[in-house]
């Protein structure tokens, strides 16, 4: 069937079967590959995107259910000031190693900061607990989010 999905502020026509996930449509049809497939089972968080502003697992969301929702991927946040601060902090603190988890972590962190501009360390840890990273040990990721929040303060 043909779906009209709102992705990063544009309406995109895609062909999708009933069981096709948003992740499959994003990656295989639209070549929006920032969202990664780490498990396809909703555990690793590498596929995290924003659906109506809330972080969601694209691998668990059926594309057909996403019509009418505003979908934002990391590609769509390149001009976002909060994301820019996160990106800068992630680079400077060494929070990125292989980078496979990074797009999902950044989207989750962005969502976290959008409703809690000044999170404590334990709030950052809780906010990112759905994103696995096998490389970093998390400390630098948590520090990077704190750093980005600090940067945002006037």
């Amino acid at each position: 069937m043909t779906l009209a999905l709102s992705i990063n502020g544009r309406i995109r026509q895609v062909q999708a079967g009933l069981s096709d996930t948003l992740l499959t449509v994003l990656r295989d049809q639209l070549l929006l590959t920032a969202a990664k497939r780490g498990c396809n089972q909703g555990v690793c968080g590498a596929c995290t995107v924003l659906i109506d502003g809330r972080p969601q697992r694209a691998c668990l969301s059926l594309a057909a259910n996403c019509e009418g929702a505003a979908i934002t991927t990391l590609e769509g946040l390149q001009r976002d000031a909060s994301m820019a601060r996160l990106q800068k902090a992630f680079a400077a603190t060494g929070a990125v190693q292989c980078g496979f988890c990074t797009p999902g972590v950044l989207v989750s962190a962005h969502a976290l900061l959008s409703h809690n501009a000044d999170p404590r360390t334990d709030e950052i840890r809780a906010g990112l607990s759905g994103n696995l990273c096998r490389c970093s040990g998390y400390r630098k990721i948590v520090d990077a989010v704190a750093e980005a929040a600090k940067e945002a303060k006037p």
Partner: peptide, 23 residues
């Protein structure tokens, strides 16, 4: 020097290509 890694921009912008991203 505690430099950020060379390829970090592409990684934080979601442009880094891993094997599944190649077509």
């Amino acid at each position: 020097a505690a430099l950020p890694r060379a390829e970090v921009r592409e990684k934080v912008e979601g442009r880094a290509q891993y094997i599944a991203d190649l077509y």
